[in-house]
Structure formats: C-alpha cells, structure tokens
Amino acid sequence: MSFLSLEGKSILVTGVANKKSVAYHIGKTLEAEGAQVIYSVRSETRKASVKKLLDPAPMFVCDVEDEAQIDRLRDEVAKTTGTLHGLVHSIAFANFADGLKPFHETSKRDFLQCVDISCYSLIRLSNTFKDLFAKDASVVAVGISTTRMAAENYGYMGPAKAALDSSLAFLAKSFSAFSQVRFNSVNAGLLKTSASAGIPGYLDSYMHAEQLTLRKKALQTQEVANAAVFLLSERSSGINAQGIVLDAGMSINYFDKDIVRRAQRPEPK
C-alpha cells in the first residue's frame, strides 16, 4: 500500500483537454497510485481527441453550461461506481475571440459565461454529486496563485477565479452540516498549458514569471498535479477550505536584485 492510500478509490477528473492539461497530469498520477479514475470532457469532439490518452478509463461528455448534462454525468458515474471518493474541478473558460479589451469594457455576457463555467460549475457539480460522495470525499479545484494581481492579459478570469476561491470556503461550510467532505484548491502560478497559450501575451508573462521564481525555473504542471493528488488523499485530512499556492517562490521575489537592475537599466537594444 502506498503512503497516499488511494488504491481502489474512485475519483472523477473533469477538464482534460490534451496531454498538457493539469487535469491530465492529475488523472495519470492518480492512476499510478492505483485509483479508479473516471474522466469528464467538454464535448464529443474533445472525447475523440483524448480517447487514446485516457483509454481504458471510463470517459463521459459533460458541457457544464448545460445543467441537464451535469445530471446525466452523475447518472453515468453512478453506474460506474457506487461511491465517489474525490472530484477534480479543472474547468475554466474566457472568451477572447474579439481580442483583448480593457477590463472595464468586459461585456456582461462574457463575464457571466466565464463565472458560470469557471466557478458556478463547481457548485453545481458538488451539489449534484453530494449523495454519491463518500462521507469523507475530497474535492479539489484548480485555481491561480493570486487573484489580487491585476494582469491585464488575464482580464476577467481573475475575478472568476476569486469567486471560485471564495466558493470553496462556502462549500466546505455547507457540506460540513451533513458530511466530512473537504474542499480545497491548488493555486498554480504560470504554467505552460494549451489553455494558457490562448491568453494574449501569455508567453512574455510566463518568461517573466520564470525569472521571478527563486529557483529561476518555471513551475511544472506535474508539480501542481502532485499537490492535487495529495489533497485528494486521506493524508491531507486536516486540510479544508484552503488554497495551496504553488509558484516556486515567485510571490516573495518581486524585488529580486537582478530583475530590479534590468528594469531600471534595461539592456541596450
């Protein structure tokens, strides 16, 4: 038996898009620990594209904007396992189809869609699966290292992630009335994923963040997955309503002397 005691535990992982996804790394790490992983993806097209990556694990389609599909997902998962020991929420979306705009020009439609998919879906999934959860199940969401850094190119996803962070605390409190289900998040710094590649100007931000880490090496997706798997295990039983920040020390290193020097005395072009 491994230290994490995840053998035979049934865990639903949502949001796999490709091999670079945080959800993919979490799922594969869980499988390596002996867990029974069930996957949920956004569309039939996505299911076809990741099928070879996830086979032979069960995989279902659920677009979380459609509440009927969330209900259907619960029924499908219930047929696969009688008890769900964990849920991974790795779902987020912001519409940048019209290009990057100043935050104050964010449309109501785009903002509400972002909050619906990136935050409310966790609330809806948790409520829908509450009767299937083991009494001490663990729910883990994927957040960001800080929601107080107003990065222009991240736009309204920042407030949506802030809502997600707050929702975890309220879910932990409300579920405590009838269970010991825990709600936590892994709050990652900048990662090299396909989703982040769609953010305008992300590469420059990623390279800057890498220089701000204490080790001068960017955060790895597998490091985030490792923390998530720990939170899904019984070894983290004392952790509830918390966000575990993974940023390789970036948040305490804004005044790194080399970064400050280059900012004040930029290299000649």
Rank of each mutant, 00 (worst) to 15 (best):
Leu164Cys: 04
Ser196Met: 08
Ile199Trp: 07
Arg215Phe: 01
Lys216Val: 09
Ser176Cys: 07
Ile244Gln: 04
Leu190Trp: 07
Asp204Gly: 13
Val181Trp: 01
Asn184Ser: 13
Ile123Trp: 15
Val245Asn: 00
Asp110Pro: 02
Gln180Met: 09
Leu246Met: 12
Ala134Phe: 04
Ala134Tyr: 03
Ser237Ala: 14
Thr128Ser: 13
Leu246Gln: 00
Ser237Lys: 15
Ile199Gln: 10
Val140Ala: 06
Ala169Ile: 11
Ser185Leu: 07
Phe255Asp: 06
Ala209Phe: 06
Ser166Trp: 05
Ala248Asn: 02
Ser174Pro: 02
Gly158Pro: 00
Thr213Asn: 05
Phe178Cys: 05
Ala134Pro: 05
Thr193Tyr: 11
Val139Phe: 06
Gly198Pro: 03
Asn187Trp: 03
Ala197Phe: 12
Lys108Tyr: 15
Thr221Lys: 08
Gln242Leu: 06
Ala218Asn: 13
Ser118Arg: 00
Val224Pro: 04
Ser185Phe: 04
Tyr254Lys: 11
Leu112Met: 12
Val115Cys: 04
Asp247Glu: 03
Ile244Gly: 03
Ala241Tyr: 13
Gly143Phe: 02
Gly238Glu: 14
Val245Ser: 01
Ala162Cys: 10
Pro200Leu: 13
Gln211Phe: 01
Ala197Tyr: 13
Met149Val: 09
Lys161His: 05
Leu203Val: 15
Thr221Ile: 11
Ala162Phe: 10
Leu212Glu: 11
Leu132Ile: 06
Ile123Cys: 11
Tyr254Val: 08
Ser179Thr: 09
Ser126Asn: 14
Lys161Tyr: 01
Ala188Phe: 11
Glu210Gly: 02
Ala141Trp: 05
Thr147Trp: 12
Glu234Arg: 08
Phe183Asp: 10
Arg109Ile: 08
Arg235Ala: 14
Phe111Glu: 07
Met157Cys: 12
Val229Asn: 07
Ala248His: 02
Glu152Trp: 11
Asn240Cys: 15
Gln113Ile: 09
Asn184Ala: 10
Ala169Val: 08
Ile239Asn: 01
Val181Glu: 04
Ile199Pro: 05
Phe111Ala: 11
Leu125Ser: 01
Gly238Lys: 13
Ser138Trp: 04
Lys161Ala: 05
Glu210Tyr: 00
Gly155Tyr: 15
Ser251Arg: 12
Ala163His: 04
Arg215Asp: 03
Gln222Lys: 10
